[in-house]
């Protein structure tokens, strides 16, 4: 990949008899050759006619409009944002519990994070889909699938956000809490007015990354069993693909994800860089 890191000027005539510069040229030539061979093999093996017919079928892609945006993307955004809001709130509470002087709160918070980080998100969605109605028959979540989706994504992301918030709270200098307390603010007041706002500023970049992850995880909503009106991007693409017996809609769904995730990831990296520059 990169230049050989060894021996610049000192070993002018190494054992092989090649100068370092000559060796570098050779190595780069080999790397290009490998690249060309791999591309050629893929190109020869692929059935280009079939690919263009299957994956770049504009007629089929057109069939998905405008529902791709008005239904599928819209639902994806709703699932993601509602899950994010719930995860944010629950994550913050868990992070505060982690600092509590009441030991059981600390244990519960630690256990929650371990359990929900350790389980596949899919499993949690399956539990919400089939386990929740059995365990709490009286419970109806607001918005049915929307409520369940928010719950599933919220429960999963809360575990990650709790850890992020914990780091953020620890990054606020101790003197901030002391200054607030010395002005007569009770602990919780000082947390809410002074410490938490600073912690949130610190964790905005990692939370933006979490939003990207949630956006992708929202595809798991399909395991809750959704109607045509509740469908999100991944299932929408899959359904269209089977209707038209053509995979183009899956590709289109994928591109739609990228329209959101790539800029968002870029924003997260910019925020991270800006934070670094401020130090």
């Amino acid at each position: 990949m990169s230049e050989p890191s060894s021996s610049p000027t000192l070993t002018a005539a190494p054992p092989g008899g090649l100068s370092p510069r000559r060796r570098q040229q050779l190595s780069r030539g080999v790397q290009y050759a490998i690249l060309v061979v791999v591309i050629a093999v893929i190109a020869l093996l692929a059935d280009w006619r079939e690919i263009s017919k299957s994956f770049f079928n504009f007629t089929v892609a057109g069939e998905g409009m405008p529902a791709l945006f008005t239904v599928a993307l819209r639902n994806t955004v709703i699932y993601t944002l509602s899950g994010f809001v719930l995860g944010f709130a629950l994550g913050l509470v868990l992070a505060l519990m982690r600092q509590s002087s009441v030991a059981p709160y600390r244990w519960i918070s630690a256990a929650y994070v371990e359990v929900f980080r350790g389980l596949p998100a899919l499993l949690i969605f399956l539990m919400i889909g089939s386990g929740l109605p059995l365990a709490f028959p009286e419970l109806t979540l607001p918005g049915d699938v929307y409520g369940k989706a928010a719950l599933g994504l919220g429960l999963v992301s809360a575990a990650y956000m709790a850890e992020t918030f914990r780091a953020g709270l620890q990054a606020v200098p101790k003197g901030q809490m002391e200054a607030a307390r010395s002005l007569g603010m009770p602990y919780m007041r000082a947390m809410v007015s002074i410490v938490i706002p600073q912690a949130i500023r610190i964790v905005i970049p990692p939370l933006t990354n979490e939003l990207v992850l949630l956006f992708k995880d929202s595809s798991l909503v399909l395991f809750l069993g959704v109607t045509a009106a509740q469908v999100e991007l991944a299932k929408f693409g899959n359904d269209q693909a089977s209707t038209f017996a053509n995979p183009t809609p899956i590709l289109v769904s994928g591109l739609t994800y990228l329209i959101i995730t790539i800029p968002l990831g870029y924003v997260a990296r910019r925020l991270e860089a800006r934070k670094g520059a401020h130090r």
């Binding site: 200098p173 003197g175 200054a179």
Partner: peptide
Amino acid sequence: GMVFQQFNLFPH
């Protein structure tokens, strides 16, 4: 009232 060596103003 308390005044600290490191000021501890609220930066936000």
